[in-house]
Design a protein around this nucleic acid. Structure first.
Lengths: 333, 333
DNA sequence: CTGAAAGCGCTAACAC
DNA sequence: GTGTTAGCGCTTTCAG
């Protein structure tokens, strides 16, 4: 039994309890060095008995590696990010890393603080989904291996998806369904990946139809007045929405304002967040390959951490269309 | 300018660069000790110049406090948890703590590993949402101050909500709308908080109506056959569902199977996850006061960490009904 | 195969 | 007001 009130036993305590040297204790715990089989067993047993736990910080301090990585995300309340976080956590676990998840609340200042903090805690690497395509980190990050997600930051290895292709596919789908007057609701336009998908969409609309409107909205289900107005005007029979969260807001708005989806208004979103599949109607959308992003990111990071600098590749993943029920032929064709 | 390729400067480097002693450098950085104002300024300036960052691990090792807490959650893909995580992260930040978030993937083994890992990294405290009402941690946790969320674990300070009252309120609401034949779809029944809400609901139904069925489902939008069957049978005009995620699954199922909600089937859920407000119809549900849970938890933890043992209180928060559109009078009254 | 000792980066007595 | 120094718990040469 362990006394609940004593301090956590140290390696020294363990060595003493097992009457071996400090080194032997360490070897036994880590499975390193060369140690008599019985000694090792004995130490391990005693460790169990006295409830010994390695102090990972001390270990990290000595070895210079923490086996921890930081995941810096802009906003956990956007359902896109928890999914990503989950994938990263699981993949990292497979590689033997723990993950610090942080939410920068969309603030560049917090983002900087967070990054600083993580570096200060000596994470072995960083997976960073910046708020914008702006390097708020500067030299803060130092030499910490870093993979940037979705945004495009010079000097970093970036993992992205083919946003333009996604936007184009979305519009093609709408066109194929017979829509001609198509609107665009973009997310924040200071984000390159957002501009890309919307520009590609606009181009495609320009080619074969008519751009009814192009407005933008924050990453939120709450619609800004201009957006609500654009929808209410019924200038378009269909909209391409740059992010599913916003699309869900539009879906809700349309329905509470007497517009039937998809009959009066077809919608295609972008991201394929989990509940896109459970709205009514379920949302047709462009999939962001999250699991792949996560595993590519962790893998790339692991490579670098293990000293494989691996030329700063830029990885671009595919963005398939997921066809569900929010698109139909326009009523008045 | 900092050489991108050199190691991170240490306090020693800083001291040397500023030509002061190690202690003075430390004092300047931490604002402790007594130091000439100019010395301090000078050191700080030099620190900036050479890009010095504290090594928080080393500091933690020395002081015995990491200013980090661990948040152990069962499943980030249930939208309930990211919201909770976000609140915890933000509150913790206000108290000067960083948060390690982990997802135990519903596995008790991973839960144990995770807890071990966190303790090994010397977190100052733990906020733990156990998978079940089972203490998988045992003595692993040692003396690390821990707050348990939602579940009820002997010996821990637990923060819970009034589940029974919530279940009762849900049914009262259904009753008031004129329903008599009411079904219950519970979440996993090995969870006390789940049993409480459903038992209270059942009791209330028993008192003034008729329990049409009582089945259970995993925390998922995917319905188990028994649950789908119960819904399809139309044995009930209304259901109380123990968790919103499941409720969303039922909503989707009902609608794709020709049942109109709320006309053919009224639904009230539990949790008030973010998208409950954006389904169509928006889901009437019982609110879990997440922000409050989070801030109570962090606060309680901070207290203990700062050495205020504060008798192991059990905090019970209120569970108000949020009335939206998924409840109507039954068609055939 | 085992033990003694150095040192990772930092803080906090304690001396000056 | 500033500098010296002893460790925090651990890993890892290097001798025996």
């Amino acid at each position: 039994m362990t006394d609940t009130h004593s301090k956590r036993p140290t390696l020294k305590d363990l060595a003493k309890a097992a009457s071996v040297s400090l080194a032997s204790a360490s070897y036994a715990i880590n499975g390193t060095g060369s140690l008599g089989e019985q000694t090792r067993q004995h130490v391990l047993r005693v460790a169990e008995d006295i409830g010994y736990r390695q102090n990972l910080n001390a270990r990290a301090m000595r070895t210079g590696r923490t086996r921890a990585i930081g995941l810096v995300l802009p906003d956990l309340s956007n359902p896109f990010f928890p999914s990503l976080a989950q994938s990263v956590i699981q993949t990292a676990r497979r590689w033997g890393f723990s993950v610090y998840v942080t939410d920068t609340e969309g603030s560049e200042e917090l983002e900087r603080d967070t990054l600083k903090e993580l570096v200060g805690r000596n994470v072995d690497g960083l997976i960073w989904f910046p708020i914008r395509d702006v390097d708020t980190a500067g030299p803060l990050i130092g030499n910490v291996p870093t993979i940037v997600l979705d945004r495009s930051l010079p000097g970093f290895e970036c993992i992205q998806a083919d946003y333009a292709l996604g936007g184009q596919r979305a519009v093609e789908h709408l066109l194929a369904a017979g829509h001609r007057r198509i609107g665009i609701v973009s997310g924040p336009t200071d984000i390159a990946s957002m501009r890309q998908r919307c520009e590609a969409a606009a181009a495609q609309i320009g080619r074969h139809g008519e751009l009814a409107f192009q407005v933008s909205n924050a990453f939120s289900t709450d619609l800004e007045p201009a957006v609500a107005a654009a929808i209410d005007n019924r200038a378009a029979t269909a909209v391409f929405v740059g992010a599913d969260v916003i699309a869900m807001g539009i879906l809700g708005h349309a329905q509470t304002h007497g517009l039937k989806v998809p009959d009066d208004l077809s919608i295609v979103g972008f991201d394929d967040i989990p509940w896109a599949n459970f709205s009514s109607p379920p949302l047709t959308t462009i999939e962001m390959p999250l699991e792949q992003m996560a595993s590519e990111a962790v893998e790339a990071l692991a490579q670098r951490i293990d000293g494989n600098p691996r030329a700063s590749r830029r990885i671009i993943l595919d963005t398939p269309l997921i066809s569900r029920r929010s698109v139909a032929r326009p009523a008045a064709a």
